[in-house]
Amino acid sequence: MIERILPEEVVSSETFGDDPRARLLPQEERFVARAVHSRRREFTVARHCARRALARLGYDEVPVPQGESRQPVWPAGVVGSITHCTGYCAAAVTSSADVLTVGIDAESDAPLPTGVLDQVSTEEERRLLEQLPDGDNWDRLLFSAKESVYKAWFPLTGRWLGFTDAFVRFERGGRFRAELTVPPVELPAGTLTGFTGHFVTSAGLMATSVVVRPGDLRGRNRPNGKEPTRP
């Protein structure tokens, strides 16, 4: 499922349900040493997915520890993202030479619990959701899109991004656009003003992805980040 919304340079691995082959490496054990069984198993299968994806990049049995903000810590030269929900987990990785950041999220294809939409969206976003075709759980999809946005944002900035700090608008063809409502971020490759993402629904699940390449940023390869002047 997840590969349907990732570009070819991003490799992925996914698991539906549990995987009895999944094991933690010693460097990962401490992060769930005191966790309940369900959390430990979730973490274990997710790391197994991550290692399978990394193997496709040529990395053999490398640990994927957890950072201070619970983010996966990838080998040098790799960017990636992990997601898990009931009955599903996935990992997506690629070379940092090709992609600046990746964010993925998966959710059960069901409405959000009562009251959650108001907490994670703006009034304008909720108005736009009401205009979308019936039959899809757009509220949950909006939540998932914002989760993918955050997972792509954090490795670039090391900062928190609130649910209303990016305005999400769904587009045709399984795409969405998330415009930052906080000040743009200046990066070596250019200026980050927002994200373009993709979404898919399948077999009771939904997934979203955000991939940022260097050329996606404003001001790429322009002196001082300025637009070229007209003759």
Rank of each mutant, 00 (worst) to 15 (best):
P183H: 11
T164A: 08
A110S: 12
E179L: 10
W138G: 00
G162E: 15
P133S: 01
E123P: 03
Y150R: 10
L112S: 13
L180V: 07
G103D: 02
R169H: 08
E123D: 12
S121T: 03
D118N: 06
F195D: 12
S121A: 14
S121D: 07
V120T: 05
T122I: 11
F195Q: 12
D105G: 02
E171W: 09
K146L: 01
F167L: 13
P155G: 11
H198F: 04
L161I: 03
S148N: 08
G115Q: 04
A152K: 00
L141S: 12
R140L: 03
A203Y: 11
A189E: 15
D165H: 00
L187W: 09
A166Q: 05
G190Q: 07
E107A: 12
G173P: 05
T181V: 15
T201R: 15
P133Y: 00
L156G: 08
L156P: 02
D105S: 06
R140P: 00
E125N: 00
E130M: 06
T122V: 10
V200D: 09
E186Q: 06
S202V: 14
P183G: 13
G135W: 05
A145F: 02
T201E: 14
S121L: 04
F154N: 07
P188F: 12
A110M: 10
E124N: 12
W153H: 15
D109G: 11
P111C: 09
G158P: 07
G115L: 00
P183K: 10
S121I: 00
V200H: 06
V168H: 02
T164P: 05
E107T: 09
P184S: 14
E123A: 11
G103H: 04
A110E: 15
E130D: 13
D165W: 03
T157S: 06
A189D: 11
L112Y: 13
V149P: 05
W138L: 01
K146Q: 01
E179Y: 03
L112R: 14
D139L: 04
W160C: 02
P183R: 10
F167C: 11
V102I: 15
G135R: 01
A189G: 07
F199R: 07
R159M: 09
V182D: 04
G194K: 06
R126F: 04
A178S: 14
T181P: 12
Y150P: 03
P111H: 07
P188E: 13
A145C: 08
E125K: 02
R177N: 00
A203C: 14
R169N: 07
R159D: 13
H198K: 07
F167Y: 14
S108Y: 00
T181R: 15
T191F: 00
E123C: 05
A203W: 10
L156T: 07
P184G: 11
G135M: 01
T157F: 02
